[in-house]
Design a protein around this nucleic acid. Structure first.
Lengths: 272, 272
DNA sequence: AATTGCATTCCAGATAATGGAATATGCAGG
DNA sequence: CCTGCATATTCCATTATCTGGAATGCAATT
């Protein structure tokens, strides 16, 4: 009953079990995911709803502040989403527990540290610590990336019990981001086996060219929460040798967070 | 038809015109606003829905990833909210246009700079620049504060055409945050008149003790977007005299952003 | 075993969502 | 000024979905 919620692929989310809510959220997701404001007819093509229905759904979303309309009638994400997210983020207990550990890891390595939570076939970035004060949420927080091409994603998969891993693997849809991106379960699988053996996973410019990282898995006692920490940097500065050196502190951090989660959040103290 | 959407008071949001969506979002807001995970019966008391209905709504929200349930059956905000917000924030065109101006203002003053958008009777923090790398979204981004006790809020109200100002004032519900908080429309009104005259508003420890700020209004040509910039700091370091000095650069920044919005986003180029 | 305090499920009836078709609106070019 | 085209918006009979009071399930507690 709580298996494959996730909101996996960008395509169709609410198949029907959530009634009208699923459909409306699918529409919302369509608009929010778009990289430009969409007009009614754009959305009509992207969604599989009939005209009248879609129009009412959009009106309701606007009226509720989840979407806004500009003067040219195009739809854009609304401010209420930000409001929701702020609360959701600032009260996330898992993040709060992990934060001091991330800080420490950042001090040891000097590079950007990320914390991501496994959500279906995606990793959602929940926190980050970086030196340059380019800063802010802009970068990553809330961003969702595929599991198969990120250090965080692969590390998280390593922590997963076999049955659940199989589910995730079966649900993957591969997309080539760089020339190193895994494009098959076979290829990904052997990488995962190696990572599981070592206790940490690499991202060898698989998601973005010139970016590398090491990541280690985090999980709570019941595997309700599966996550990962990573240290990331530009290829010119961060060699594979360097990553091997950082692997130890990254693992240590991951273990420390895992322990803290079980202690501080207690049994049944999920995250957010 | 687009008047008092807003989601004003924390109490009851969806009155019915948005059908079932409004009710579900009200439930979501209840859970997300709470400062601790809520059990079913807690929510039952807070919402005015009957048992069966509420239970189904919560199930649907969980299934869609908007909420999560921990092992003790308590409900917490889900990760999908973060995902939505990231996109909503990172694509916000108004924020992108304003950012360089905020940076410049921060360099001039050395204190924290905020950007907020008026939304009903609240100001929603959309961006911020600060020196200390305490950093990140944690602080404010996405946070919603009342208009009547914040510099940003009062500045934004100054920009409002009389008719719309009256609407907002009529909808206010006052709450005392400090001993300086305005508690009546009369008191707020004369403060606003003074601010309008000067071109900038103060927050004299009205929202939080020991915190002061100066803020100036921003708006686009059609008043579809009403916002404000501010410089904020701790009272021991930031005197009222200091604020008077910063008023000029703050106003300049506000004007520059207003102009940029009309140029760069063009007519009908709303924000988000 | 009985009780209490929950969460969860049921199902007939009420209501709001549906969706195809008609209408309105805005903007070209004739 | 009219006409045609491409949009967005509204209508309304049908029906799927939501509603909500009451019954049931499930664990702790006494």
């Amino acid at each position: 009953m709580q298996g494959e919620t996730s909101a996996g692929s960008p395509a169709k989310t609410g198949q029907g079990s959530t009634g009208t809510l699923g459909k409306v959220l699918a529409v919302l997701e369509t608009v929010v995911s778009a990289d430009r404001p969409l007009r009614f007819s754009d959305i009509l093509v992207l969604s599989d709803q009939p005209r009248g229905t879609l129009h009412r759904q959009l009106s309701h979303l606007v009226e509720e502040g989840m979407l806004t309309q500009d003067r040219e009638l195009r739809y854009e994400p609304g401010l209420r989403l930000l409001k929701f997210a702020h609360r959701s983020w600032s009260k996330n207990r898992f993040r709060a527990v992990a934060q001091p550990h991330l800080r420490r890891l950042h001090e040891e390595t000097g590079e950007t540290v990320h914390l991501g939570v496994l959500n279906g076939t995606e990793i959602i970035y929940v926190d980050k610590v970086e030196s340059r004060q380019t800063v802010r949420m802009e970068s990553q927080i809330g961003n969702a990336s595929p599991v198969y091409c990120t250090g965080l994603g692969k590390a998280a998969l390593c922590a997963l019990p076999p049955a659940r891993l199989a589910e995730v693997l079966a649900a993957l849809v591969f997309h080539r981001f760089t020339e190193n991106t895994h494009l098959s379960v076979a290829s990904l699988g052997s990488d995962l086996d190696a990572a599981r053996g070592r206790g940490y996973a690499f991202d060898r410019e698989e998601h973005e060219a010139e970016i590398r990282c090491v990541a280690a898995p985090i999980h709570d006692a019941g595997f309700d929460l599966v996550a990962a920490v990573s240290v990331t940097g530009p290829a010119y500065r961060v060699t594979m040798e360097q990553l091997e050196i950082w692997a130890a502190p990254v693992r240590r951090t991951a273990v420390a967070i895992s322990e803290d989660v079980d202690i501080r959040l207690g049994p049944g103290g999920r995250f957010s």
